[in-house]
């Protein structure tokens, strides 16, 4: 089957995780190329709507990344986000979504290697789990087969 590769969206904070991902590139670490990064000012900015929109548009998993506790550029954005992420993760699972499809990481600007490892780990697990077909089937079921609202970019 001509299955397209998995696609993972990562929302990374500007100050730590994004810089960490950048470092992974700068020091020429190799990791899987199935992740697309979206930079946000702070992990505190990441809303539940981001996650669902990513799934709707075809993401097979979402990673959110922020600074380690104590390192937040805005002092406590990541600590407020931590509570929200816990609730989100639990709620996704309560609705029947595999926990692997939503990962939270703390990754500093110096942790290029950690980032590369996380990308490989997540990609590996999502490859095993397969594409997020159940979510993609949602719109099709209302409008009828073949009439799904395809808004993602295939």
């Amino acid at each position: 089957m001509g299955e397209r590769p998995i696609r993972i969206i990562a929302f990374l904070c500007n100050w730590c995780s994004y810089a960490g991902a950048d470092l992974a590139g700068t020091i020429r670490l190799k990791h899987r190329a199935d992740v697309r990064v979206i930079r946000v000012p702070c992990s505190g900015r990441i809303d539940a709507a981001f996650i669902l929109k990513a799934y709707e548009r075809g993401a097979d998993a979402v990673i959110v990344g922020g600074c380690h506790p104590g390192d937040c550029h805005y002092v406590s954005g990541n600590l407020s986000a931590r509570r929200r992420f816990l609730v989100m993760k639990q709620l996704l699972e309560f609705m029947g979504i595999e926990p692997e499809r939503f990962e939270v990481v703390w990754c500093s600007a110096a942790e290029g290697e950690k980032w590369a490892k996380i990308v490989d780990d997540v990609c590996e697990r999502i490859s095993t789990l397969g594409p997020f077909r159940s979510y993609k089937a949602l719109t099709a079921s209302v409008l009828g087969p073949g009439r799904e609202i395809v808004t993602g970019e295939e």
Binding site: R57, I149, V150, T151, G152, E153
Partner: peptide, 11 residues
């Protein structure tokens, strides 16, 4: 309109 970057539907 429910749309992506280039494709969508009008409902």
């Amino acid at each position: 309109d429910e749309a992506g970057i280039s494709r969508g539907v009008r409902l």
